[in-house]
Write a protein that binds this DNA or RNA. Sequence first.
RNA 1: GCAGGGUUGGUAGAGUGGUCAAUUACAUCAGACUGUAAAUCUGACGGCGUACGCCUACGGGGGUUCAAAUCCCUCACCCUGCA
Length: 416
Amino acid sequence: MQKPLKFEITHRLPGTLARAGVIRTPHGDIQTPAFIVGGTNATVKSLTPEMIRDFGGQSVLANTYHLMLRPGADIVAQAGGLSTFMHFDGPTFTDSGGFQVFSLGVAYKKGIDAVAHTEKGDAQKASASAEQLVKITDKGVHFRSHFDGQKLFMTPESSMELQHKIGADIHMAFDECPAPLAPYSYIVESLSRTHTWAERCLTKHQDLNAEHDAEGQPRQALFGIVQGARHEELRKRSAEFLGAREFDGYGIGGVFESGEIPTVVKWTNQTLPESKPKHLLGMGAQPMDLFLGVEYGVDTFDCVAPTRQARNGALFTYDGRMNIKKQQYRKDFTPIDNECPCYTCQHFTRAYLNHLFHADEILASTLASIHNEYFIVSTVDRIRGSIKDSSFFELKKDFLTRYYASQPKFLALLSL
RNA sequence: GCAGGGUUGGUAGAGUGGUCAAUUACAUCAGACUGUAAAUCUGACGGCGUACGCCUACGGGGGUUCAAAUCCCUCACCCUGCA
């Protein structure tokens, strides 16, 4: 009985949880640490798979909830599975829909940031009165489609069935992502539900893998998702509970800030089995996340911010983030970043990008996304290299002091 | 020449006596964006001031009125018919 996934750790960074290695999947290897590119709708918005390869993207993460609604998991299955359907031949992940419990629930029409950072009283008041598309029960989650209002019910079992139809290499357990400022008692209740669901996911997943065996199809992998919000005892409880079970790897879920990685991620990863891959769900919008994540044991990241921000004109440079739409770049005939070897920086100027954004041309999204993805993916690649040659802390200090030079608030947080 | 219609903030275009510094859209400017509800969202957008506010403004000039972008007269320009 073959394992669907092998994880080999090749290097460790003494005194930290950081390691480098490789995840082997039926669709190929992922050199870790790695940034997994956000491809929610079976597409990395505005990019072709060739572009993804070109900027160094090793793997793509799609979303079960979104693909269930459009085009439907059966259609993806009939197409030959996610990889064939979207013409990306590398390793793929699917998220379970658990995050949509949050984003279409308490965060609906308010935004993640608002729910994560407003005062507790305000957040509760807001969520009590606000419109939501989600109703959570122990059995599963009732969704109303954000497209047409159609009623849907997703359970751990149905999420597994959908993910097996979609056929990515690595699946995520169906979890509840709770609002980070929800009352402690609610977080406890939610965590218990997430654990029960994780066991149900695992059972269903093993059944489905048995079917794959019978059909001579490759097995698929399942990651359990650790929750527990910002509470040490809950994070550790969750990591112990899930760590004791036969998951192929683990996702670190929830909503928290970059500065909390050294606590929340550490509690989680020092408790989970060392030998399993750890995926930090949804984080990687800025370099700090990547360095801190790796330092505290993260093997893979995914984040939609690089492409979303690219579409909105916010571009990474080694000296911090810039807004390319600003007037000051109208006649700036230099690349986004002089040191960047990406396709966009090799061939186009800030003035041209500025023009494309103002003219509302779709190429703006493509060129900007190539650059932002290259920036993040290559940064993780450099971090991986720095673990192998033990220059991690040097790279971390050089990179972050430069990137955050104008943001003393962050620099202080990093204590470089 | 006669008759009718029109001229509003960067643009288009509402508004026909006070609640109008003037709806709205676009453009412009700034900010946000972390398991994608997102090529999205928020804010500013006559001048000065943090603000109460003050000043200047709805083609020009004059008038009526407590009060005019809105009513009247006149001038300029544009459009449409008839000559």
